[in-house]
C-alpha cells in the first residue's frame, strides 16, 4: 500500500516536473505579453524530435541536445517576431486563435519534416531501476526531476537577481512604466519566447526516453502546462511550478487508485473545482474591475 503510494507519487512528480516546466513557459510569456501561448506544447515536440533526428544523424547526445534546444529557441523567436508582435494589440480571443494557429502550423511542419512515427531516445544513464522504499524509479526520472529543478532555480535566479530578469518582471507589472524607465519591451517579448522555448525543449528532451515523442504529443502536454499555470494563478511562476507538480501527482494517484482511463478527466475536474472556488487560481491575486 505504502509502496504503491510512493510509486504513484514518484511517477506523478516525474510528469509533474514536465508540466511545471511547460507551465512556467506559459507564465513567462504571459507576464511579458499577456498572451497565452498555446503553441507551448510544440516546443516540447520540436525539442524532442530534433534531438532524435540529430542523434540518428550520428551526433553525440550532448551535442544533439544543445543544437535541438537552439533550434527550438529560434522557432520561439520566429513565433514571437512574426506572429505575436504584429498582432500585439489584438484582443484575448484573437491572440488565443493566433497561438492555436501557430501550434497547428508547427505541428504540421513537424509532421512533414519528421513524419508521423513515434520516436524515442536512449535513457541517459541506463535502464536499471533504482529502489526507493520499496518503490522502483527509473534513473531517467531522476534526470527529469533534477534537470527541471535546476532549470526552475535558474529561472528564479534570473528573474530575481539579474537586471534583464528584473526588467522583464517590471514589464509584466506595468508595461508603460517599464517603457518609460527605458526597458525595451520588444526585447522583453522576444526573450520571453526564447526562454520558454528553452524550457519546453529541455523538458521535451529529458522526458522523451520515458514518454516517447510524436508530432501529436504537444497537444495534451501543452494543455496540461496551461492547466498548471492556471491552477497556480496565471502570471505566478511559483504557482505554475506548484500547479504542475500537483497536477502530475493528482493524475498519477487517480490513474493508480481510480481509473487510468479517467486520469485526465479527474485532473480537469480538479482544475474546474479550483477555478470555481478561486477564479484566479490557487495563488492568484483577486482582481476587481476598476472603473
Amino acid at each position: 500500500m505504502l509502496e504503491s503510494t510512493i510509486q504513484f507519487i514518484l511517477a506523478g512528480l516525474t510528469s509533474g516536473a514536465i508540466y511545471a516546466l511547460v507551465g512556467l513557459g506559459f507564465t513567462i510569456i504571459y507576464n511579458a505579453s499577456h498572451v497565452i501561448n498555446f503553441a507551448q506544447g510544440e516546443f516540447i515536440v520540436i525539442g524532442g524530435m530534433s534531438t532524435v533526428a540529430l542523434v540518428a544523424a550520428g551526433l553525440p547526445l550532448p551535442v544533439a541536445i544543445v543544437l535541438a534546444t537552439l533550434v527550438t529557441m529560434v522557432v520561439g523567436l520566429a513565433l514571437a517576431r512574426f506572429a505575436i508582435q504584429p498582432a500585439k494589440d489584438a484582443d484575448v480571443v484573437a491572440l488565443i486563435i493566433i497561438t492555436i494557429g501557430a501550434s497547428i502550423f508547427l505541428r504540421g511542419i513537424v509532421q512533414v519534416v519528421f513524419g508521423k512515427d513515434i520516436h524515442s531516445l536512449p535513457h541517459f544513464s541506463g535502464e536499471t531501476p533504482l529502489n526507493l522504499m520499496g518503490a522502483t524509479l527509473m534513473p531517467q526520472s531522476l534526470w527529469v526531476m533534477g534537470i527541471s529543478a535546476a532549470l526552475i532555480l535558474v529561472m528564479a535566479w534570473f528573474f530575481n537577481a539579474t537586471l534583464a530578469g528584473k526588467a522583464m518582471l517590471a514589464t509584466a507589472y506595468n508595461a508603460l512604466a517599464a517603457r518609460l524607465m527605458g526597458v525595451d519591451t520588444k526585447w522583453v517579448l522576444l526573450s520571453a519566447f526564447a526562454l520558454s522555448a528553452l524550457l519546453g525543449a529541455v523538458g521535451g528532451i529529458v522526458v522523451t526516453p520515458i514518454t516517447f515523442v510524436s508530432y501529436e504529443s504537444g497537444i495534451m502536454l501543452g494543455l496540461k502546462g496551461f492547466s498548471a499555470a492556471v491552477l497556480g494563478g496565471l502570471g505566478n511562476g511559483i504557482g505554475a511550478v506548484a500547479g504542475g507538480l500537483i497536477l502530475g501527482v493528482v493524475e498519477a494517484m487517480s490513474a493508480g487508485y481510480i481509473s487510468s482511463a479517467y486520469k485526465d478527466a479527474i485532473a480537469f475536474i480538479i482544475i474546474l473545482v479550483v477555478l470555481v472556488a478561486r477564479p484566479n487560481g490557487l495563488f492568484g491575486k483577486k482582481g476587481i474591475d476598476r472603473v
Binding site: 498582432a87 494557429g101 502550423f105 512533414v112
Partner: peptide, 20 residues
C-alpha cells in the same frame, strides 16, 4: 493532405493579424 495543417495554421494566424 500532408500540408493541410500547415495551411490551416497559417490561415488562422494570417486572418487574425491582417484582418482581425
Amino acid at each position: 493532405e500532408d500540408y493541410e495543417p500547415i495551411i490551416l495554421g497559417a490561415i488562422m494566424m494570417g486572418t487574425m493579424i491582417f484582418m482581425p
